[in-house]
Write a protein that binds this DNA or RNA. Structure first.
Lengths: 229, 229
DNA sequence: TTTACTTAGTGTAAAAATTACACAAACAAA
DNA sequence: TTTGTTTGTGTAATTTTTACACTAAGTAAA
């Protein structure tokens, strides 16, 4: 027990809510715990913050260690600081959330996790700790955010059709949107590039493919802009 | 050194950005530190989270101990987890922010603070730690929030005129607003009650006093509403 | 008591944004 | 060539937002 302090300290952890999307459903990434407490139960990927890494870095590291996901943009969600979150001892956790292209990453459970899998956000198994509460907050935040920031693109493949994008928005918002108004709005932002390429194989008219113009978005971001859906 | 752990743990603290408003200016509450590090320097009120209190409770307690402020609604702002925030050792802090009626509270510096004072938010002295960064983030958040939630009322006396309210909004947003449009919008929310009472003493037409209808607001809040200015 | 000064309080027209809504175009399969 | 399916497009009505100027009510000073 080499690390001693004058006063008792809570342990500090990070947890990550990672959202993915697979053409029909919004999913969250969970791991199956390999250690007590809640061994073999599903939970958000996360773990202890090391003394020599920032909290942000801890989130990145734990996400990688437990799921194999790398190069993910994590945004801080909220800090959960109640007393009995963990049955063993006092633990405060800083929660993060991220959006990823499911096709762009291969899952690989390693440290502290037996398994890592995507679950539909509204059909998750019973979760360890207060992780259901964290997940719920992340869903709420995602819904709020999607209406005023162009974030949906992170969840889609690089090339996508406007119909796919609309379905994603409808899934996140749990609402239906008018096709023509949606297109008007989303194209009006000027952040989508039509590629002149078209989908193939469907027994119907092919749809044009678009991609998100990240550079343009970053320029706009800097000049303090915001947009609404 | 009675508290020992297998791994080194960051210390966990809370810091509070408390905003007030005194008819012309937006102010933040600072304390003069009575202990090292940064002894005698101005800082945000805050301190260590105890092992037997929630993080939220720690914020309330520290705010009270260092400034005498009680019954303040604190909302979590952000968690600052970089490595060298504190010169002594690794400290992670959960920042909170609050809005208070300056007239409704008496300042009283006690534990760990030599003094507690209001400073105009854009004219603060050099602050300890990374507290300037925290304050800046709180200002940004306040600006963002005021446009879609009726929060300004917390900063004004119970009875106020529409002109006072408009000035407050203009101060927070660092912008000027059209008088007629502002009134239309703010009254259209249906959250202000005209009191039939009027200001006295000015060498000009008296202004009607209003108050914020908190109950109505809470009802609306529950049914998941939002409004924009 | 009249005049000057200051702030309060009010409505409307123009512009912009949002909403609602229906059909032809392009392909594959039968 | 007919059927079935999804893509892609414009306009009119409504709502929201913006811009803008004068009268009302009081005090102070002449």
């Amino acid at each position: 027990m080499p690390f001693c302090y004058d006063y008792a300290r809570p342990a500090l952890t990070v947890d990550c809510v990672v959202f993915g999307y697979d053409e029909t459903e919004l999913k969250a990434l969970l791991i199956k715990r390999d250690l007590p407490p809640f061994k073999r139960m599903w939970a958000l990927p996360g773990g202890f913050v090391r003394i020599d890494e920032t909290v942000d870095d801890a989130a990145k590291r734990e996400l990688f260690e437990e799921t194999g996901l790398e190069n993910v943009y994590l945004e801080q969600l909220y800090t959960f600081g109640d007393l009995h979150r963990d049955p063993r001892e006092r633990v405060v956790t800083v929660a993060y959330f991220a959006l990823v292209k499911m096709s762009g990453h291969r899952l690989r459970a390693t440290t502290d996790a037996q398994d890592a899998q995507w679950f539909p956000v509204r059909q998750t198994p019973k979760l360890a700790f207060d992780h259901q509460e964290i997940l719920d907050l992340a869903i709420t935040r995602l819904k709020g955010k999607v209406t005023y920031q162009p974030i949906g693109f992170e969840l889609l493949p690089t090339k996508f059709t406007l119909t796919e994008l609309q379905k994603l928005y409808e899934t996140i918002l749990e609402a239906t949107l008018d096709k023509r108004n949606f297109r008007k709005k989303i194209l009006g932002m000027g952040l989508l590039e039509p590629l002149g390429e078209y989908t193939e194989g469907g027994a119907h008219r092919p749809a044009e493919l678009y991609r998100f113009n990240k550079k343009k978005y970053e320029k706009l971001s800097k000049s303090g802009f915001f947009f609404e859906l």
